[in-house]
């Protein structure tokens, strides 16, 4: 399967899922596509439908209302599909962890394979994160 994994690592299509973020990680994710960072160089492409995705970029602390949708969308994805938690929110809940409306155990909603901490992470950090994921696939 290593041949296939190499193809997968070179053609990562990402789906961007925001689960009650502050929008900042989201614009930084979009920033990745634009001329300064241009992740198309690595074959990373943003797709609109989760069925086409290889990687789901999850941003934001998941709130209770959006949690069932997040779960459903992950289930709809064609496997193999990895989930990358972008920002501090999916990792620790940031300053929203005390709220009445946030999900306390995010692992129950969606399995997150890789965290990119930062509030927001710099685009360079996001590229490094995705490249690390590709490195795991290549190994």
């Amino acid at each position: 399967m290593s041949w296939y994994n190499k193809r997968l690592a070179k053609s990562i299509w990402v789906y961007h899922m925001s689960a009650s973020p502050c929008n900042n990680c989201d614009i930084e994710i979009l920033d990745l596509l634009t001329p300064k960072y241009d992740v198309e160089r690595f074959g990373i492409k943003l797709v609109g439908s989760v069925r086409h995705a290889d990687v789901i970029l999850l941003s934001g602390v998941i709130n209770q209302k959006v949690a069932p949708q997040v779960k459903k969308i992950y289930e709809q994805a064609a496997k193999p599909c990895f989930v990358v938690g972008v920002g501090t929110c999916p990792a620790s809940g940031c300053c929203f962890k005390d709220s009445y409306n946030t999900v306390k155990k995010r692992e129950d909603v969606i399995p997150i394979h890789l965290y990119i901490p930062g509030c927001p992470p710099k685009p360079e950090a996001m590229i490094e994160g995705v490249v690390k994921l590709a490195g795991v696939l290549n190994a």
């Binding site: 296939y4 070179k10 053609s11 299509w13 198309e40 160089r41 074959g43 290889d54 064609a78």
Partner: peptide, 25 residues
């Protein structure tokens, strides 16, 4: 056109072969 570098040469081939190995829903 958009001041970007663009994908490497084998990109579309990689995309195609990758899709062949994915799950069909």
């Amino acid at each position: 056109f958009q001041y970007r570098v663009g994908p490497p040469f084998f990109q579309n081939f990689n995309d195609f072969f990758k899709l062949l190995g994915k799950e069909t829903i």
